[in-house]
């Protein structure tokens, strides 16, 4: 997983596995000029979990707007999709 800095955010997708999740999330990110630095995904007991580390440095929109678009997609697909500044995870898990 890449280095975390002020432009780094974490996208998480949790829910029922269906066709096209990565494609549709990636489409929104690419439309906003958000670079995907890392993707991992697992399926635990049929629950699809995807984590993306993304870089917002060249993003054409702010994180709130992108968050709104991803949330809308999540609602359409019946998934929970969120984007958060990586600072939260550093604060909670590193001394």
């Amino acid at each position: 997983m890449g280095k975390m800095d002020q432009h780094t955010a974490v996208v998480t997708v949790v829910g029922q596995d269906t066709i096209g999740i990565i494609a549709r999330v990636s489409a929104i990110l690419s439309e906003n000029q958000v670079n995907i630095k890392d993707i991992t995904q697992t399926i635990l007991e049929d629950i699809f979990t995807m984590i993306m580390i993304v870089d917002l440095e060249k993003s054409t929109q702010d994180i709130k707007t992108i968050g709104g678009q991803l949330e809308q997609l999540g609602n359409d697909m019946g998934l929970s999709i969120r984007i958060q500044h990586s600072g939260l995870f550093n604060a909670m898990h590193r001394i």
Binding site: V10, T12, T42, I51, R82, H93
Partner: peptide
């Protein structure tokens, strides 16, 4: 380096 486990724990 934050692990997937830590990210999911936070979520």
């Amino acid at each position: 380096m934050i692990t997937d486990f830590e990210i999911l724990e936070t979520i």
